[in-house]
Design a protein around this nucleic acid. Structure first.
Lengths: 239, 239
DNA sequence: TGTTACCTTGTACATCGTACATAGTTTTGC
DNA sequence: GCAAAACTATGTACGATGTACAAGGTAACA
């Protein structure tokens, strides 16, 4: 199979180099490897996606993987592009750009919620993949009614996506945070002892924000706050 | 020395457990370990901060490090708190909240530019450190003139910091991107061949944004665009 | 029927974090 | 003074990880 990342990203394209039909047929396709990796990362986190584990899941020997993907870094790019390609792209029916922007943000929050490991994939080569490009195109079209210049349109979309990404990061269950919450009575007590009466504002606001965060309703409230801010941020551009 | 993360974070506090003066005096302090780790990460990236390398830089055996820091994960938290503690906190003199918000954003961009590895430290226990809390307090005070509720004040600050963080991420020189840029003539040609005439909007906007990005002036322009958006986003809150 | 091209596999290596046992060094309590 | 206690420093070792490399097997082409 091809080793080159670009050809692997575009492996479903008619012009992509097909595997010459000599030797034995591959027991798995690159797409099967990528799908298995995505499934594994979704359920057990990106750290579980090791060559040995993934090969085991696929019934292959460890090194056979490298016939299909090139390297682990390449695999991460392929995984990201796969979930980008699979993300729904409903037609933009609404006229109101605000509603469209909200939909884009919500779709990205949903994407990162379904695949939290996306936050750990920062490889810029992801932009070369067909799924990522299709997603980019679809989201650019969401901003059609705003009448922006090309550069501003890109910048505005980046602004929305960065917000969604940051919100997803804040929601992500961190293993360290989990252990921290578990022993919070003790930890909080000691922290309070060190803090004393210093930074009263930080203590008060932090407590308020923390209480709001723990109240079950809050992630949604925080999201709506941010989303309203994003819409307000973009409004001046449309005048 | 103490092994517990909280005690290490607060090691300069009068109430922190001092090392009982029995055995030989430690050849390095925890602060020296953390400072050396920060210096190493600043110059060679976080991946270079390994136990063996760091110990070597300090003239210690590998395992001696663990007398001073507990674990690598703990070390990352200590590093983040150290740079938070060292960040300048000039008094907020301006009355205009917009100017104050811009200063906060710029300070955070500068922080992440000086220490790009901060983007890789996502451990939530960082919030327990004195440097991080002092930074939080100072930045909350920047928003004093806005007259926000506690919860909104925290959310507004989060909004600003997330923006700065995303901007820093976009600017960060990625090793993969560097190699990509190097061989771009070839890569771009093949990508164009695959893309053909599909996604014309993405191609046009992507090209425009890419051109603007490569024009040396741009990072600054993109930053100003985003910063103006952030200020516009927060303006409705002050009415 | 080679020959060629491809897939699969096993072995091996460098590197990582760090558990653990050991040994050395200084203060403390008698 | 001296043993005990508390502390630091070190070396060895283990289980992971990514992946280079060589060898072997298998199907289609000449």
């Amino acid at each position: 199979m091809a080793r080159d990342l670009i050809d692997l990203l575009w492996r479903d394209h008619p012009d992509a180099p097909r595997g010459g039909a000599r030797g034995p047929r591959a027991r798995v396709t690159t797409s099967q490897v990528v799908d298995a990796a995505v499934a594994l990362a979704d359920t057990e986190g990106l750290a579980a996606v090791t060559a040995r584990r993934l090969a085991g899941d696929l019934g292959l020997s460890t090194m056979s993987l490298y016939t299909h993907v090139g390297s682990r870094d390449d695999l991460l790019v392929l995984m990201a592009d796969a979930v980008h390609a699979a993300a729904p792209r409903p037609p933009h029916t609404e006229d109101d750009w605000r509603a469209r922007v909200r939909r884009v943000a919500e779709a990205n929050l949903a994407l990162h919620t379904a695949h939290p490991w996306l936050l750990e994939v920062t490889d810029q080569r992801t932009a070369l993949g067909p799924g990522t490009i299709a997603k980019y195109d679809h989201e650019l079209h969401a901003l059609d009614p705003m009448g922006l210049s090309d550069v501003d349109r890109d910048a505005a979309l980046t602004f929305v996506l960065d917000f969604a990404r940051a919100a997803a990061r804040a929601r992500r269950p961190d293993p360290h945070a989990a252990r921290m919450a578990e022993s919070w009575p003790e930890t909080g007590r000691r922290l309070a002892a060190y803090l004393g009466a210093d930074h009263p504002l930080a203590q008060r606001v932090g407590a308020a924000a923390g209480a709001a965060n723990n109240a079950a309703y809050n992630p949604e409230a925080a999201w709506r706050f941010g989303l309203a801010r994003v819409v307000a941020a973009l409004a001046p551009l449309t005048e």
